[in-house]
């Protein structure tokens, strides 16, 4: 795999790009979020604040990271799916010396197997750059689900209600008609 470039015989490679000699400073709060009693089928929403401490505007991106078992809090299991966590917006442009917020939504599918669980997952915040050294900050997210499933109406229940209404209507109609016709 050789690129056909002018200067192909050049033995040197530029390794680092010129960069500002500034620290990559930014902060995220809160550092830890605990969600308790979240029922499968429900969602929880909270906001993270990103503070850009540098003198230039930065774009921040958000990721979900599954920490190793030894990095998690005691009694916490791995979060089942990173797809259950959504960031809005997915990336954030923050002016120098300013702060901005991202909304995080955690949605648990309505299945009984996700009831009564204690999970941990980390939310990563970083500002990708062309510099050699990059910083990524993680917010610990601790999620505990309730022992019961959400009471939101299921499809079967809705179907049952509709069918019942139709049948009751029919019954009332026939009763009304039969009473009218049996009158002298």
């Amino acid at each position: 795999m050789r690129l056909k470039l002018a200067g192909i015989l050049t033995a040197l490679l530029l390794f680092a790009v010129p960069a500002l000699a500034l620290a990559q400073g930014f902060a995220v709060s809160p550092a830890e979020v605990t969600i308790e009693n979240l029922a499968p089928g429900e969602k929880a929403e909270f906001r993270l604040t990103v503070h850009n401490k540098e003198e230039v505007a930065r774009t921040f991106v958000f990721t979900v990271f599954q920490p190793a078992a030894e990095e998690r809090r005691e009694g916490r299991e791995q979060f089942p799916s990173t797809h259950w966590i959504n960031f809005s917006p997915s990336q954030l442009q923050v002016p120098p010396g300013s702060s901005a917020e991202v909304t995080v939504t955690v949605s648990i599918p309505r299945e009984e197997k996700w009831a009564d669980k204690d999970w941990e997952v980390w939310l990563g915040v970083s500002s990708p750059s062309s510099h050699l050294l990059n910083v990524q900050l993680y917010v610990r997210l601790l999620v505990s689900t309730s022992s019961v499933v959400s009471r939101q109406p299921s499809t079967a229940l809705l179907l049952a209600v509709i069918t019942a209404a139709v049948l009751l209507g029919c019954g009332a109609y026939y009763l009304f008609r039969s009473k009218r016709r049996t009158r002298p």
Binding site: G25, S29, P30, T34
Partner: peptide, 16 residues
Amino acid sequence: ITMTGGYEISLAVSPD
């Protein structure tokens, strides 16, 4: 939903 105190996490590296 509990946001742990007013904790802010921050890290800087210089030069980068």
